[in-house]
């Protein structure tokens, strides 16, 4: 499956899960700010990606859990250097540009762009194939 096919399928998943129009979905669009995703939508997206691509996604694999609540990773509402390193290590597919510019904890969700989801699926599919 090439990148365009993955992108189209990811786009369909987001249209169905978030009730957005397909022209609202672009590679740079963030799930929360641009597409209006709320916390339960992340689980919905995971379930739909599993079905669409016939893959298994473990809890915390695509979207991080237990980061914002860890005082080592977040202090005074800002993601620490250690927290950022942890996120980058756990989420190699994510886009850290916004969070690096402003490590406000509310920007953690900004690392999830449509492109990041496509990269994640791509790596899962290539891991499954090898």
């Amino acid at each position: 499956m090439d990148r365009n096919e993955i992108y189209d399928k990811v786009s369909d998943v987001l249209v169905d899960a978030l009730g957005v129009d397909d022209d609202e979905v672009s590679p740079q669009a963030t799930l929360t700010s641009d597409l209006g995703a709320e916390s339960i939508d992340f689980l919905d997206i995971v379930f739909r990606l599993e079905k669409a691509f016939d893959i298994k996604i473990a809890q915390g694999e695509l979207f991080p859990d237990n980061v914002a609540q860890n005082p080592e990773y977040v202090q005074d509402g800002k993601v620490t250097g250690k927290g950022l390193a942890e996120l980058k290590q756990r989420m190699p597919h994510a886009d850290f540009a916004t969070l690096e510019q402003n490590p406000d904890v509310n920007n953690v969700a900004e690392i999830f762009t449509v492109e990041a989801i496509v990269r994640f699926v791509e790596s899962k599919l290539s891991a499954a194939a090898s």
Partner: peptide, 12 residues
Amino acid sequence: LMFSHIDQNMTG
């Protein structure tokens, strides 16, 4: 429908 196991999700 979607259901949440809230103890597992709303960490904190």
